[in-house]
């Protein structure tokens, strides 16, 4: 579990995908960082964009909205969007809000996409 205030975004490439790994708490403050980072990213040429949520220790409603903003951008470009499972709290919130039904969730960032 990461401590408050420590939020990191690291991107790496798979053969067909761009993987955006989030670490720390995804809340109102860190969402702004994610939005900024996304605006600066070159998403061209990838079949899929994967948000790796395994390092996300906490997610709130603004964080949910941020994930779905990324999803909206990626789908709007005709690319696939997937996430990996986050912490128990993240998964609880995703299932509580029914949003897990709208996310393609994979075990590892490099797993085969549907």
């Amino acid at each position: 579990m990461s401590t408050e205030g420590e939020f990191h975004i690291v991107t790496r490439h798979g053969p067909d995908r761009l993987i955006i790994k989030l670490d720390g708490e995804l809340d109102m403050v860190s969402c702004a960082l994610l939005d900024e980072a996304l605006a600066d990213m070159d998403l061209d040429g990838w079949c899929a964009i994967v948000l790796d949520l395994r390092g996300v220790s906490f997610l709130d409603s603004t964080g949910l909205k941020a994930i779905f903003r990324v999803r909206g951008v990626v789908h709007g470009r005709g690319q696939k969007f997937a996430v990996t499972q986050g912490s128990a709290q993240v998964q609880r919130l995703l299932s509580l809000t029914g949003l897990d039904q709208h996310l393609d969730t994979i075990d590892t960032p490099d797993a085969v996409l549907a």
């Binding site: 949910l64 779905f68 809000t97 029914g98 949003l99 039904q101 709208h102």
Partner: peptide, 13 residues
């Protein structure tokens, strides 16, 4: 039963 949050995605269940 948990249902979908409102206003974010379609469709909701």
């Amino acid at each position: 039963e948990p249902g979908t949050v409102l206003g974010l995605v379609d469709p909701i269940a």
